[in-house]
Write a protein that binds this DNA or RNA. Sequence first.
DNA 1: CCATCAATGTCAGTTACTGCCATCAGTCTA
DNA 2: TAGACTGATGGCAGTAACTGACATTGATGG
Lengths: 222, 222
Amino acid sequence: MARWKPDARGRLQRAALELFAERGFEQTTALEVAERAGVTERTFFRYFPDKREVLFDGAGELQRVIVESIDSAPATLAPIDVVGAAMQVGAGFLEGGREYSRQRAAVIAANPSLQERELLKLASLGAAVAEALRRRGAPELTAALAAEAGVSVFKIGFETWIGDDSAPEFRQCIRSALDQLTSLTAASTRTEQAPDSTTSGTPPQSAAPLSASPLSASPLSA
Amino acid sequence: MARWKPDARGRLQRAALELFAERGFEQTTALEVAERAGVTERTFFRYFPDKREVLFDGAGELQRVIVESIDSAPATLAPIDVVGAAMQVGAGFLEGGREYSRQRAAVIAANPSLQERELLKLASLGAAVAEALRRRGAPELTAALAAEAGVSVFKIGFETWIGDDSAPEFRQCIRSALDQLTSLTAASTRTEQAPDSTTSGTPPQSAAPLSASPLSASPLSA
DNA sequence: CCATCAATGTCAGTTACTGCCATCAGTCTA
DNA sequence: TAGACTGATGGCAGTAACTGACATTGATGG
C-alpha cells in the first residue's frame, strides 16, 4: 500500500522501546509496536523471533567485541587479567549511550520475562568468553570460572554505572569491581575445614534438586 | 467427575518431567501434561503460573536453605567464606538426587526458554544471598560480588557434579571451584595500567548499549 | 514490456494463559 | 438433617504470541 519505507528494523526497535517505556512491556502488543513502526505484525516477527528480542539486538555486537579482545590479548597475560581487560573494552563499547542504557535497563528491570532474556544473553556471553579462554590454553575449570567472574564484574559494573549519577565512567566502575573481587577472594580465612553440612538442619540425603521434594527420592516415576 | 485425587501438584510435576524428557518441552502441550496427570489444563495453570514453572518448584527451598546458612554463620567469617560454606550447604541439599538432577538438567539444557527460567532462579538466589550478606554488614559492592561469585561457583560445581560420572560429591566439586577461584584472582599480574579502550577498534563515544546501534546516538526518539 | 526478487501484507491456525461461573464433595452449624 | 460454606475442579470463551502458506507490490535487469 504505502510506499516502501526503509529501516523497518530500526523503526520497530525505536517504537518498541518507546511503547514499553510508556505503558510497560506486557501492556504493549506486538501489533501496536508494528503499527507505530508503520508495518504489519507479521513483519515484526520477520525481523525478531519474538516480542522480547526487539530489545536485544546489540547483544551480539557486544559479545563479538569482547571475544575479539580476548583473542588478541598477549598470550602471557593471566586469564583473569585477560577477562578484566576484555570487559573494559566491552564497557567502552557502551560508554557513549548512557541515557539509552538507562532507559533500556529500566524497561528490562520492570519485567521478569525481559530479565530472563537478558540473563540468557549474559550467559551466552559467558560461554563465548570461556570458549575464547580455552582457545588460548586455559584449563576447563579455569576458563569457566574466569568467564563467570568477568560477566559478574561486567554486570555489577554496569549497574553501578547506570544507577549512580555521580558514578565515574563505565570502565572505571568495572575496574573497581575487579579490584574488589581480588581483595574479596584474598580475604578468605578458610582453613581446610568444610562447614558442617547439616548446618541448616538439612539431612545429608533426601533433599530435592532444583525442584520440589515429591520428585527427588526415587526416579520420580511413581 | 472422578473421585478426588490427592497430590495433583506432584502428579503434574512428574508427568511434566516425563513428557518433556520423552518428546521435548516445546513438543509437549500443557494439555497433554494435564491429561497424563489426570486433571484439566485449567488446573495445571492453577498450580503453576506458566508451563515452565512446573520444573522449578524446588528453587525456593534451595534458596531458603542457603540464606539460612548465611544468616547463621559466625559474624567474624569473611564474606567469601560465608558464601562458600552456604553453597556447600546448598549442595548438600541436592546431593541425594543426582539422577533426578541429571534428567532435569538435560531437559533444561535442551530448551532455551527453560534455560532462561533457570537463570532467573539463579539470579534470584544471587540477590537473596547479597541481601543476606548486607544484613551482616557487608558493603554494597562486596555483597554483590561475593553473591555473584557464590552463584557462579554453585553453577559450575553443579555442572561438574552432573556431567562427570567419576566426579566426586557435589560438595567436593564446589570446594574445588572455590579454590580455583581463589588462585585465579590471586594470579592477576595486572599493574594499574588500564587496557587501551580502542583495542578492538571501537570509538570511545558513539557505541550502542546492549542493543543495536541505530538506537544509541540521540535519545532514540527519531 | 516482462521475468524476477526481496520485503510485505493477508489469513488461518495452534497454543499459552486468564477470567468467570458452574459443579461437587466434605464440613460446619442451626 | 437441611442449608450455608469452602476448597479444588471442570468448562468455556477470549486475548495475544507466534507460524506457515500464499498473494501482492515496487524496483531492477534485460
